[in-house]
Design a protein around this nucleic acid. Structure first.
Lengths: 66, 66
DNA sequence: ATTTTATGTAATATATAGTTGACATCATGT
DNA sequence: ACATGATGTCAACTATATATTACATAAAAT
């Protein structure tokens, strides 16, 4: 269950994992794990990522079906 | 920063904190703390709450301004 | 009056989110 | 060939989300 939308939004902003990690105050490993899926970040971190990438929670973290 | 929208959505579903807690697999204290604010739940828990209340992440956990 | 229901809160315990440091791979640049 | 940038991953650590147990209060029901 990779988070492809997050990766695409990050690349659209011309940021690498380190850039995004710095922007939201976590390490690049944490960003990497979120993009890889199999991870359960906190709400505050999700919100920080959304703001850094000019997206909303639904746009990056809400799965329509199921 | 109380989460009033969550509380309203729960009451609209005629659920108390215990009902919602059981529905999403946490304790009533955890639900209480999320409604009280000052808390940082995990994304998976937020998603479970949204599904239990027929809402999306943006509807319950996204703050429009700032 | 007293029992029940719904909620707040606090202390201690456990699971897991997130850090730190290190090493590996694969591009691309020089 | 070698350096550099971007990412994957792993082990050990620290911070914190969540559980558990318990006690408190206020409102509604009997």
């Amino acid at each position: 269950m990779k988070n492809k939308r997050l990766k695409i939004a990050r690349i659209e902003k011309d940021m690498n994992q380190v850039d995004l990690a710095n922007a939201v105050g976590v390490t690049r490993q944490t960003i990497g794990m979120i993009e890889s899926g199999n991870y359960n970040p906190t709400l505050n971190l999700c919100i920080a990522i959304c703001k850094a990438l000019d997206k909303t929670l639904d746009q990056l973290f809400w799965e329509e079906s199921e």
